[in-house]
Amino acid sequence: MSLHGLEEYLPSLVQFCLSVLRISLPLSLAAIAGFWSERSGTPQVGLEGFLLLGALAGATLVKLTDSMPMGFALTLMIGAAGGMLFYWLACRIAINAILVGLIFNLLIAGIAPFITKLIFGSTGSTPTLDPALRWQFFPYLWAAGILIVSLILFHRTGFGLLVKFAGLKPEVISSAGFSLSTVQMCSLILCGVISTSGGFILSTYLASCYSPMMSAGRGFMALAALIFARWDLPRTFAMAIAFGFFEAAQIYLQSVNSPLPSQFYQALPYLMTLVVLGLRRQGLSEMA
């Protein structure tokens, strides 16, 4: 390809890369959230519910308070409360965490239309937000910040070490004089905060209102990314970006006439996860 041709393609290429990053924001945040939960020994299938919770709370609170930072802060607090609730049910009362996750997804999907109807009188969606409120680049900073903080927290601090042990050998923690409950609680609160922030970005940055089921399986895709990357944070993040790439490619290719059907790109994350599960040797990890 000549340089001239490249110049012609460059703007659309940059645009495409930006849209990949944009689309993968909620997904990668959900994946990091899932990372904290699963590494601390709590299987997390409730990411979809957390994303929806963040999306709903975000769109509603920003609309009500008319301020982005205010809505964001409140959403994060709701996320922390959600994480606490998850901890209480899954670790304290010891209900099977997978069941708790499924209940979470079900309840939030059911309560969302109820809340929009109560507050805004509409079934399903919230009213559109003022475009002037929309953030320009903060979501990218937030995601990058969360990634870096998570990396440092997990690999360089005592807390990270405790989380590692909570997932691999929980009995070590109490022998060393620490509280397993506290470690699990902190990880699940982190999980709740990070995943709801992903939902917030979904409804206020990728869209401008909450619409029913807008997370569209991203929570499960995040889980797939996590399993595919074998619970390693940088790889998980890379996988989330890759899934975002496929999503963006799917939207782009629909306009071009692609040789592969759009369903292929939709199924790809799940297919890849199954392939990875199929490739590994027996008993590598009991996490998934």
Partner: peptide, 20 residues
């Protein structure tokens, strides 16, 4: 054979079946 958790596998199969 792979000691994968059946929830994860069936969840992935659900999405795959829908796409197929």
């Amino acid at each position: 054979k792979k000691s994968s958790h059946e929830v994860i596998v069936t969840m992935m199969l659900n999405f795959l079946s829908a796409s197929v």
